[in-house]
Simulated assay, not measured.
Amino acid sequence: MPSEWVRVCDAKSLSNGEMVEFDHAGKKVMVAKAAGQLYATDRICTHAYADLATGFMNEDACTVTCPLHLSAFNLKDGVPQNPPATEPLKTYKVKIQDEGIYVELDRQP
């Protein structure tokens, strides 16, 4: 399926330890910055419907914790680190271009 790069925000607007949420073509995605690296994942917990962008980021462990049942997900690969979640989050490629943060998403038909 073809993809497209979607501009999320200005690169300077996201500091270490912060997350930004966005919606695009029905997808709920977030970008997180941990230890100078950018990561993009789906932002809805795979266990129960909870918005991970309202959760807690552990920058040192590179995880985000669901505010509902406290499952933590690795931001690098989306893999849950503890129950009750067992399914990984989808992850996306991220780049900085023209002073903006972009995420590669599947193009919707």
Rank of each mutant, 00 (worst) to 15 (best):
H47Y: 10
L89H: 06
V103T: 06
C66K: 02
F22R: 01
C62Y: 05
C9Y: 06
D23Q: 11
C62K: 13
Q97C: 10
G36A: 13
D98I: 10
G26L: 05
A40L: 05
H69Q: 15
C66D: 07
V64S: 00
L14M: 09
P84R: 09
Q108Y: 14
C45I: 10
G100V: 02
L68S: 10
D10N: 13
I101H: 02
F56C: 11
H24F: 08
G55F: 00
V79D: 05
S3T: 15
D23V: 08
D51M: 05
E18V: 04
R7G: 02
N58C: 11
C66Q: 06
I101M: 06
A11E: 13
P109R: 05
Q37R: 15
A35R: 14
I101A: 02
L68G: 01
K33R: 15
Q108S: 10
I96R: 08
K33I: 01
V64F: 01
V8I: 13
S3N: 12
Y39M: 08
N74A: 11
E87Q: 14
C66R: 03
S3C: 07
E87L: 12
C66T: 06
Q108T: 11
V103H: 04
L105V: 12
D77R: 12
P84K: 03
A34N: 04
A25H: 08
A85Y: 01
C45T: 07
N74L: 11
G55N: 05
L89K: 06
V79P: 00
V64G: 00
V6N: 03
T46S: 06
A40S: 11
A11S: 14
Q81M: 07
Q37L: 13
K93N: 13
H24W: 12
H24S: 05
E21M: 05
Y39D: 03
I96W: 08
H69L: 11
C9I: 14
D98H: 11
S13W: 12
D51A: 03
Q97L: 12
E104S: 09
L52T: 02
Y49E: 15
A61H: 13
D51K: 07
E104A: 05
L105M: 09
K28R: 14
G26V: 01
R7I: 06
D23L: 04
K33F: 05
Y92K: 07
N74V: 04
V79Y: 11
Y92W: 13
A85S: 12
D98W: 10
C9P: 00
T41I: 09
D98Q: 13
H47V: 07
